[in-house]
Design a protein around this nucleic acid. Sequence first.
RNA 1: UGACCUAUGGUGUAACGGUAGCACAAAAGUUUUUGGUACUUUCGGUCUAGGUUCGAAUCCUGGUAGGUCAACCA
Length: 563
Amino acid sequence: MEANREEKEEVKSLHFIEQIVEEDLRNNKNDGRVHTRFPPEPNGYLHIGHAKSICLNFGLASKYNGKTNLRFDDTNPSKEEQEYVDSIKQDVNWLGFSWDDREYYASDYFATIYDYAVTLIKKGVAYVCELSADEISTGRGTPTVPGQPSPFRNRTIEENLDLFARMKAGEFAEGSKVLRAKIDMSSPNMHMRDPVLYRIMFAHHHRTGDSWCIYPMYDFAHGQCDSLERITHSVCTLEFEVHRPLYDWFIRQLDIFPSRQIEFARLNLTYTVMSKRKLLELVTGNYVNGWDDPRMPTISGLRRRGYTPEAIREFADRVGVAKRDNTIEIVLLEHCLREDLNKRAERRMAVLKPLKVVIVNWPEGEVDELDAINNPENPAAGTRKVPFSGELYIEQDDFMEDPPKKYYRLAPGAEVRLRYGYFIRCVDVIKDERGVITEVHCTYDPETRGGNSPDGRKVQGTIHWVSIKHAVKAEARLYEHLFIKENPDDIAEGEDWKDGMNPDSMKTLECFVEPSLANVESLQKFQFERLGYFSADLDSVSGKPVFNRTVTLKDSWSKMAAK
RNA sequence: UGACCUAUGGUGUAACGGUAGCACAAAAGUUUUUGGUACUUUCGGUCUAGGUUCGAAUCCUGGUAGGUCAACCA
């Protein structure tokens, strides 16, 4: 009995970061406090990879009763803009997380970080270096060859103090001097070979304006910001692993609160690119229509495409957290989306590629109001009326003059059910002079209203439709992967990664939707029966809706037909 | 050929010295007024060579493969 119960209680295993946190909690480290942060640089829009990090950081805090700060890493004024700050806040919010009043900026701490630099100078472990960027780089050696000490390495503390103060005062030209840490020019870790701490930049900062002309490097700011905010667990991606010894060195030299940095593997997705640099290039090069183009893996793009925060959070949960490089198949993201939308999206009927059907025995001019179920997964969603008449559109794919075996849809002589309507049987096919089918003539069975026949005869196929007279014209935007190749970064010599872009990633169609869709709210989501999930675009206007196809329904017929 | 990190089905991820499990994908089937959903079943895995151990995916050593690091970017 006991054993049986234990067997059934499935223990969800902890990922390695949760294990670290729980161990710290057991040891009462940090007085049992868990405090994380999400630290984006405001130089681009957030993408699905950031979403993983956001869910991780905020999720950790909420699981262990802690807090998460939002902190902008704005130490490089030449790349950072307010527009990005705004979009990042919106996206984190939309994903469903709150940083309360803990919105911080690395630039908030510039004065303190400056003092930290002075402390290092006074300890004799930082110096002003007048080598050029190139000279510093070559002087650093290579991973296998030790670096050479800078000729400025042994200046006196007084001289360093004076020079650094004058750098701050704006006495020197951009690029003429930097402040460097004095650590170990022959360290096997390149980051310990006297890294640059401060550089001169006469750039306008989006928050501090022109009050500074020297700016700390990321490496000399990030760890200290964590420390100042008393972050207990500083979660970041793998590439910062080799920086950790440097951060720990700063913590020791400065004797400040030691945040613990933990690195995890960033998210990669098939059929898309994730680097900020490449996403920026897609936007600025007009390969897509902005950061929120529904084909973009950005949070704003996914939102406009029709993704829900719930689906993205579920996805972030399912991909796991570990240290090995990974590429997640995009079908997992799509699966999480369908799972969510299936439960929540109301069903509607829309015809993307219309084929006219004339019901030859339909009473002239008559209109029937049929009941349609809004969501079979949720009876509380109720029903709606859909007008039916003698002239309809059906999907071109739902008629074949010469159908293969197992084709359940309409064909000459065949009978199908019109969803929520009647059984119809094809009696004639009308073609134009070029042989293109322009109309299909059918008879309907009045006894089958609603979709059941009193004689109990079965039809295999059920197809969707709209009444021509009542249909609303709409625009449908159909999306596919932005890239043809599973890994767009896998390119041959001389090829550009953009060569792998999918020329058919967006198709715009004039389509027909049922009248209940005439007025929709932006981002309102529907399942167009048998077609997929669609989300109203912000380009929609009253009476002229625009729908983005978020994702198709799974389609086992097309798979079968392909064989 | 330096340092650091990583290696489990097609893709992810568990198993913490004791039966290699789960999800997605793929395949087959049942149900169905969405060829949707739901449900059932199947396929398929510990990089390699040694060592420790009664017992190794797990610990140790060597190899191999992949990743990261040589911005006054983050």
